[in-house]
């Protein structure tokens, strides 16, 4: 009556190996999923010519804490892709700065030919908004180019 081995010797029919034939499909699915969902967050580029600097450093702040202010050659100010006047800059930036718990970094993207008076007006507006950290966004200048100028 007793069952040999207590009934445990009956081997399962399920294979102990992970089926590897569909592994390729899974991997390609993941690959395609990541390729499709990766978005390079970019603002609409404004037509400016960048200023160049040799000692430019990367902005050490999370992307969401960076506010781009574009400054066109004729003095047009664009904040978050919206055109604003210089007078509005303080009232636009101040609430954004408060909402970010004073962590906001302003990236000023000025055309290299914009007269400095507009830059000064913008700086005054930013000071009035209480902003402390400002970065003048530039392109990295190569030493060779500098020699030639």
């Amino acid at each position: 009556m007793s069952i040999k081995g207590g009934g445990f010797e009956k081997s399962s029919k399920a294979s102990s190996e992970i089926p590897s034939s569909s592994m390729a499909d899974i991997a390609f699915l993941l690959l395609i999923f990541f390729m499709v969902t990766t978005v390079f967050q970019r603002d609409r580029d404004r037509p400016i010519e960048w200023a160049e600097a040799e000692s430019a450093q990367k902005i050490d702040e999370k992307q969401k804490n960076i506010l781009n202010i574009w400054m066109e050659r004729e003095g047009g100010v664009y904040i978050n892709d919206q055109p604003h006047t210089m007078e509005q800059a303080t009232t636009v930036v101040a609430p954004l700065y408060a909402a970010s718990e004073r962590a906001l970094v302003i990236s000023v993207r000025g055309d290299r030919e914009v007269p400095y008076r507009y830059m000064d007006q913008l700086q005054t507006a930013l000071v009035n908004a209480g902003v402390v950290r400002v970065v003048f966004a530039t392109q990295l200048e190569q030493s060779m180019q500098r020699e030639r100028r």
């Binding site: 000071v127 970065v135 530039t138």
Partner: peptide, 9 residues
């Protein structure tokens, strides 16, 4: 990542 010249206002 953007590069630039940082200043403190």
């Amino acid at each position: 990542k953007d590069k630039g010249l940082a200043i403190v206002l």
